[in-house]
Amino acid sequence: MDFISILSIFVLACFVGYYVVWSVTPALHTPLMSVTNAISSVIVVGALIASAAPGVPGSKWLGLVAVALASVNIFGGFAVTQRMLGMYKRRERKDG
């Protein structure tokens, strides 16, 4: 991909982000932060590339540490978001 196509994706994604985030209900702003945290750990892709590549040991070890750190975030971020979202309940209708 050339630089201009990448830039186009980036700019359009910023607009998508703008509209999507404004539609998030304020009650869910904390889960929003924890889930954005989890997804920004997609940086693990870069870490995997570094740790998979042979030849340069320094790069491999930096990559492996980054894989571990990003994994804390991915698993922890999604799990804590799921736990929080599970708490949001509607009013129970008690009849009688």
Binding site: C14, S40, I43, V45, G46, I49
Partner: peptide, 17 residues
Amino acid sequence: LHNSAMIITGALVGSSG
């Protein structure tokens, strides 16, 4: 890395924050 998943995510999280 020329990686669209990372760019889209970065833009989403960046605008969210």
